[in-house]
Design a protein around this nucleic acid. Sequence first.
RNA 1: GCCGGAAUGGCGGAACUGGUAGACGCGCACGGUUCAGGGCCGUGUAAGAUUUAUCUUGUGGGGGUUCGAUUCCCCCUUCCGGCACCA
Length: 830
Amino acid sequence: MKVLADKNYDFNKIESKWQSLWEKENTFAVKNAVENKPKFYCLEMFPYPSGRIHMGHVRNYAIGDAVARFKRLNGFNVLHPIGFDSFGLPAENAAIKNKTNPAFWTRNNIDYMAAQLKELGFSYDWNRIVITSDPEYYKWEQLFFLQMFKKGLAYKKISNVNWCDSCNTTLANEQVEDGRCWRCGNSVNIKNMEQWFFKITAYAEELLDDLDGLGGWPDKVKTMQRNWIGKSSGLSLFFKVEGSEDNKDEIEIFTTRPDTIFGATFVAMSPFHPLAKKLIKTPEKIAELEKMTHNSLISKDISEKEGFFTGSFAVNPFNEKKMPVYIANFVLMDYGTGAIMSVPAHDVRDYEFAEKYGIEIIRVIKPATSGKEDERLPFTASGTLINSGEFDGLFSEEAKEKISAYAEKTGIGRKVVNYRLRDWGISRQRYWGCPIPVVYCEKCGTVPLNESDLPLTLPGDAAFTGEGVSPLKKLKSFVNVKCPKCGGNAKRETDTMDTFVESSWYFLRYTLLDRKEEVPFKGEDAAYWLPVDQYIGGVEHAVMHLLYSRFFVKVLRDLGYFKLNEPFKNLLTQGMVVKNGAKMSKSKGNVVDPDGLIKKFGADTVRLFVLFAAPPEKDLEWNDSGVEGAFRFINRFYRTVIAGSEILKDADGDADTNQNIKEIIYKLSRIIEKTETEMEGRYHFNTIISSSMELINEFNDFITGEARKETVLSKADKYLLKYFLNSVILILYPFTPHVCSEAFEILNGSLIENEPWPEIIDTGYVRENCNIAVQINGKMRDLIVADINSDESAVLKIALESAKIKKYVEDKSLIKKTIYVKNKLLSIII
RNA sequence: GCCGGAAUGGCGGAACUGGUAGACGCGCACGGUUCAGGGCCGUGUAAGAUUUAUCUUGUGGGGGUUCGAUUCCCCCUUCCGGCACCA
């Protein structure tokens, strides 16, 4: 007995029906390795459990779900997991406010957001959920830390670090944007303190080189990473300090412009340079130095170049020139050597400084081209050397080589490569993060925990007052501990790890099916699933998460976990969801809440709209009436299916069919092909959806329009129309899975998930004629109809009969030249 | 300042390697639906002129290559993003 389908589109009923079926049947659960099926790992950046899903999430996950469902239809074994990046500050701030443990707030948010994701109908394998604040997850992170510690890849040092007053913690360089905290936007100070670091700089060269192999990444992201790593090759030189005690003091400088060495007129040194104090001759200037270091600690921002003469001189080994040594606020201590040779004639910054303090300026590079512009100083381009002794006449590039070689030969310098990239500071002075598994013993010093003592869990009885130091530091029961080595008194490390550590390997954890197994993940599973075939997320993580993850994978590889070099094969960075041209935010009052929309229109409508309104890489302008348009289309689509299911009941596949039907089947075939092409990586779903709309419009013309009234549909016609309608349902299924599952069931009585992607069928249709554009001197003048595959002379003949063309070409002899593009265009030159 | 990216109707966008610019949707207008409204269906919708089955202009602006340019090249403007004393 056939269940009569609702005539009207009841999204509530349809969506809850399919969602509960998917959940009950475990439809999207996936095994590690399935024979005869290629694998596809589709991953979206997991959310921080802030409380509710926002439109940015909906867009991100709708894109990912479209890819995952499409790949499943196409016979792939698809891993499409989800989890929660659940350590982090908002939970702790909420804990301070509510005087509870961050775990409660986090748990509630995860439950709510997981329910929202289910209501949106995303096809995740929920069995593989990863929650990073669970000890069963961060335990392995602590293990990685210990292994890295043993290899020297995790180490502690005192340095100037970024400090956010509002978050009460330090930040990595990547997490400071425009001098402000990436999370809260507060301006960042500098603090001198002891911190744990991951030695990402050890991988700088590999991280840079391997970018070239990431063909599936946007150039933009690769460029950002390249700039962030900031490799530069140059020369480091030793300058003797004149008159220093026993002539021992030397200043090492770094330059990328050895060709300008003869133009150096002073040495500029960072106020933090170890020699700074020693070189200064007067007490007043020591005071000045202290003022300068103090100011540099308050703010990274140097609005005005400042400095002073130390009273000491350094000697340029190339020309024995005595150069004054200056302390300068714009010289960074943690890049290069903390001191530079200053060539005001050929460096903008040095020029500015020299002008201000009246230092000598010597030109040593002559422009290759002559012109007023190039006569001006500073001149920073390449050119020919002058005033440079034996190197005169050489061009910059050659001079760099020769001068560097000379320096190496004579032992006054060496070629070096510097990186802008700094080691990743991972210490955070907060509670809600992964504890660093280290103790400080009175006797043994810094001692790592034994692996068997992991996990080191967060204590549940910490107090969240929001005042003073981290809750962990104040908790004596946590801090006071026995040394794992000698059993003596020791104190625990109370810093926790940056939450970007969790997100650096969560995609590996997803591959582990049985979470009871005592491993972070299994090498064979990782080898099967990785690299991620399609990664989707916001571009804001271009140099944070995406760089850290690449680093982490290389470290785990070197720790012997697998042979993988790069985690993410293809990357799609989706644009923001904006309203009235601005990013949605509470302060702007332009937030659109998905819950209300799902209630009003259903998940399929919301998903369809976010995919239809713009291609994924562009920003998406929110538009309420656009959502209604998406809703209207789904209604129309549903009614079409209902009507179709009545009309196409007795479909059967033989005998001749009418030419009009063959024609729309032909059109369908082109759109199936186009969809396949788009789904290979461009992912312009908006064009696929608009094509589907066209197909539905065509279909409606057949079953309700004039065409139907004129023709009686044969069984074979109906067979093709049913194939047509089923194909459209399959094309739309990745975007609007609920209504398509329902539609497929109405039409076929079976599950769409068991159906393969539509094969293109050949109806034997051939286009009989085509429209050809006729141009006169490059301007479109007429559109004529010609037999398909006509040759040029036949088309020209038709064209010359056209009244519009005759107007321009009275006589064939006027034609100078013709260009013919078969079945498309004829261009006549007169 | 340096490095990227973008600019197409009233709006979101389409046009894949140069070949009929404006698909599809929104909005708007008119019409239909025993028509209050809504919904649904149909028609029209780049601009300007007009003798309305006609012509001109038109893809940020200016130049170039080409029979032909939204597409390729050069210059400029605006907007967005990244980096910003990294020597």
